[in-house]
């Protein structure tokens, strides 16, 4: 639980890594995902999300951050068309959800706990499932489908495992198989549900590298996560959720200690080391560590300057 934080994780990425060339300046217009004043009420009467709005453009990696029960999975379900908003609307690449799904625009990488790993399917079968939307009624793969599967497996480094039953894989390999399925599907919008849970550091790095490539190719990725420490590394946008959108926008502006305190309330461990406790000089900056159970988020700077001095 209290393992020392590796130093490489303390380093924040250079600001340039979060700026995609060719991205128009100004606030996102929602050409990728537009969630517009969405409320979702379930048949049993609970309103899981109220009046939530955010907008993401193509070429974006956005973190969806909130505690359990904050409505993360409801937002995912609304985007995937599982639940119909009781108010507001979701538009994907400018289209209503139903139309976007028919066009195979949305790819979903499920949480590991949601998958039956004993299911009698091989790695290549799962990746081929990404191609079903491109096939005819009988789902008989064409040469192009096989080529896309090969390419996707190659890209996530799982080609050697293609004949394995999925239960035989490690946590990180399992994730990469489902990522390969999303690649094979060629969806413009990729939803990832807790992609780093149960994943080793190498795989985490590989996944992040792949997501950056996809961002450069113009995909929109929405990543549901409570792994706060990794968010500033690769997400250019953040949506903070607590039954509504508390804040949404560029990571540097939104992902601040104050906003995170609001999002997580008391559910977050918070360490602040400052002044005399940290060093014996006139430096007024303090070290703030925010963590739930995953990788901690570290702020280093003047507590009064909105985390601007994060290093």
């Amino acid at each position: 639980m209290n393992a020392p934080v590796p130093t490489d994780r303390l380093a924040s990425p250079s600001p340039a890594s979060n700026v995609v060339p060719g991205t128009p300046a100004g606030p996102p217009r929602g050409d990728g995902i537009l969630v517009d004043r969405v409320s979702v009420t379930y048949p049993n009467g609970t309103t899981a999300v109220r009046d939530a709005s955010f907008a993401l453009d193509p070429g974006t990696i956005c973190a969806l951050v909130g505690i359990n029960g904050s409505g993360k999975s409801t937002v995912f379900k609304a985007i995937m068309g599982f639940v119909r908003p009781s108010a507001g609307a979701v538009r994907l690449c400018g289209m209503p959800v139903a139309q976007a799904l028919k066009r195979n625009i949305v790819a979903y990488v499920p949480q590991s706990e949601d998958v039956d790993w004993n299911f009698p399917v091989l790695v290549e079968d799962v990746v081929m499932m990404g191609r079903y939307g491109h096939m005819n009624m009988l789902r008989i793969p064409a040469r192009a489908d096989r080529a896309k599967v090969d390419e996707a497996l190659e890209r996530v480094g799982m080609a050697a495992f293609r004949k394995r039953q999925i239960g035989e894989l490690s946590g990180g390999q399992k994730k990469r198989v489902f990522l390969a399925r999303a690649l094979a599907q060629e969806g413009r919008i990729i939803l990832l549900d807790e992609p780093f849970t149960g994943v080793d550091v190498t795989t985490e790095g590989a996944i992040v590298a792949l997501l950056r490539e996809l961002r450069a190719a113009g995909h929109v990725m929405l990543v549901s996560t409570h792994d706060l420490g990794s968010v500033p590394d690769f997400c250019d946008q953040v949506v903070l959720l607590d039954r509504t959108v508390l804040a949404a926008g560029a990571t540097a502006e939104v992902f601040t200690p104050e906003n995170l305190q609001r999002t997580f309330g008391g559910a977050l461990r918070n360490f602040r080391l400052g002044g005399a406790a940290l060093h014996q000089d006139a430096d007024r900056r303090s070290l703030t560590v925010l963590t739930d159970d995953e990788r901690p988020l570290v702020f280093y700077g003047d507590p009064d300057s909105d985390g601007e001095g994060r290093t």
Partner: peptide, 10 residues
Amino acid sequence: FDPGHARTIG
């Protein structure tokens, strides 16, 4: 196997 994926691919 994966009703969620089945749904998202239409």
